[in-house]
């Protein structure tokens, strides 16, 4: 029994052909729209009411929600298991970071280049993997191998600072410079909020289009999809490249928010694992799962870190993530969102 196949995406009944023509929200239940509106309003006014610490946690939540949405395109929608998404975070972050440090180019330009670089890299991995018939766990290992290979490569590449890292210049300033992404936490909050909202809307839209249905067909049964005349290779490639490009844009945010990049941390497999944990806990293949998962996991991690600060327990946060993953996999393999959605009465009438 597959965790993926148990889920139904928020906007995923076969009758959405009309909805696609009727606009983005035509297929969403009214109650869901109201809750979504409340949620969005809460997020919009949050920086005015919360303190610095809470704001930094919320930025972290949105960052993981964004990355989760990006990973979900590949795994949740098209069913291709990647365990090497840190590669794309790193490529995006390093591309934009290096262009900024060496040539003073704005991050928005670096974002486009970084996303393109990541998409090409994702395309290479995807093309090799799919053409050579590398499937399932073997494909996941292939993605890890590429990420680790690149990590060691960057560790020895002087132009990007090698293993001592790439630093973005930090200066004290009173005003926010949105063009160069230099400024306050509030600015970064709204940037990542916009990115997450954009990714959410993009995913929602994609699932209503032909490509979304093709992906789900491939995910459920690749042979059957092929028999029906779907160009499986092409649509899997679209999923990989889009997911890689989206992840790279998250990497650009990481670079400019944290101002330092080390190959050891940014390309590490732990990043790849971290960014998919939220999706698994929220619900693979669902639209809201990545967001819910990021909220649950980050809150859990921060609370435990805060509570045990005095005890000096190093691994407590990661430990709790591991336990959360086990509990979800064993007791609710579809993730939290399908269950919560039922509880909130947001099931689509059939």
């Amino acid at each position: 029994m597959s965790g993926v196949s148990e889920n139904r995406v928020l906007a995923g009944s076969p009758s959405t052909g009309e909805a696609a023509r009727g606009g983005l929200i035509a297929d969403v239940p009214r109650r869901a729209l109201i809750l979504l509106g409340l949620f969005a309003a809460l997020l919009l006014v949050a920086p005015a009411t919360v303190g610095d610490y809470l704001l930094s946690v919320m930025i972290l939540v949105l960052y993981y929600a964004y990355l989760g949405l990006a990973w979900n395109v590949m795994m949740g929608f098209a069913g291709q298991f990647s365990l090497g998404h840190a590669l794309y975070i790193g490529l995006g972050g390093y591309t934009a970071g290096a262009l900024f440090v060496h040539y003073g180019l704005p991050p928005w330009f670096g974002m486009v280049v970084g996303a393109a670089v990541a998409a090409v890299m994702g395309g290479v991995i995807g093309a090799l993997g799919f053409r050579f018939g590398v499937k399932g766990v073997y494909f996941a290992l292939l993605t890890i191998a590429f990420a680790e290979f690149t990590r060691i490569l960057f560790d020895h590449w002087g132009w990007v600072g090698a293993s001592s890292g790439l630093y973005l210049p930090v200066e004290y300033r009173d005003t926010d410079d949105l063009w160069l992404l230099r400024g306050s936490a509030t600015m970064f909050y709204y940037v990542i909020l916009a990115m997450t909202a954009g990714a959410f809307i993009l995913c929602h839209w994609l699932l209503q289009r032909r490509v979304g249905y093709y992906w789900q067909a491939i995910r459920e049964d690749q042979e059957a999809a092929q028999t029906l005349g779907i160009d499986v290779f092409r649509y899997k490639m679209i999923a990989v490249m889009l997911s890689a490009a989206m992840t790279a844009i998250g990497g650009v945010f990481y670079a400019f928010y944290y101002n330092n990049l080390y190959p050891e941390t940014i390309f590490s497999m732990h990043r790849s694992i971290e960014l998919m944990l939220g999706v698994i806990i929220g619900g693979i293949g669902t639209l809201f799962g990545p967001i819910l998962g990021a909220i649950v996991l980050t809150t859990l991690g921060e609370m435990l870190t805060g509570l045990t600060e005095d005890l000096g327990l190093d691994g407590i946060k990661q430990m709790s993530y591991g336990v959360a993953l086990l509990v979800i996999i064993v007791y609710r393999p579809g993730g939290l969102w399908p269950w919560l959605r039922r509880r909130l009465g947001l099931e689509k009438p059939r």
Binding site: I273, G315, M319
Partner: peptide, 12 residues
């Protein structure tokens, strides 16, 4: 998940 629990258990 098992791996994460073990690794961080030894770390703790």
């Amino acid at each position: 998940g098992v791996a994460m629990v073990i690794t961080n258990g030894t770390l703790m």
